[in-house]
Simulated scan of single mutants.
Amino acid sequence: MLEWVTNTIGSMGYVGIVFLMFLENLFPPIPSEIIMPLAGFGVAQGNLNLGLVILSGSLGSILGAFPWYYLGRTVKAEKLESWADRYGRWLTLSSKDVRRVVSWFAHRRGNLAVGLGRLVPGIRTYISIPAGLTRMPMVPFLFYSTLGTVVWISFLSLMGYVLGANYERVRTVLGPASGVVWLFLIGGFIVLVVTRWLRQLAR
Rank of each mutant, 00 (worst) to 15 (best):
M1N: 07
E3A: 09
W4I: 00
V5Y: 05
T8F: 03
I9A: 06
G10V: 01
G13R: 04
V15I: 14
L20N: 10
L20S: 08
L26W: 12
F27Y: 04
F27K: 12
G42W: 03
V43F: 01
L50Q: 06
G57L: 08
L59E: 07
G60S: 06
F66I: 15
W68C: 11
L71H: 08
K76G: 13
K76A: 15
A77Q: 04
E81I: 15
R86V: 12
Y87C: 08
S94A: 03
F105S: 12
F105Y: 06
R109H: 12
R109K: 02
A113K: 05
G115N: 08
L116A: 13
L116I: 00
V120A: 15
I123P: 04
Y126M: 14
I129Y: 14
P130C: 02
F143Q: 08
F143V: 11
S145V: 15
S145R: 07
T149R: 13
M159S: 05
G160W: 00
Y161N: 05
G164W: 00
A165H: 00
A165L: 02
N166P: 04
V170D: 07
G175L: 07
V180Y: 09
V181C: 12
I186E: 14
G187I: 13
V191K: 01
V191H: 07
L192E: 12
V194T: 09
V194L: 09
T195H: 11
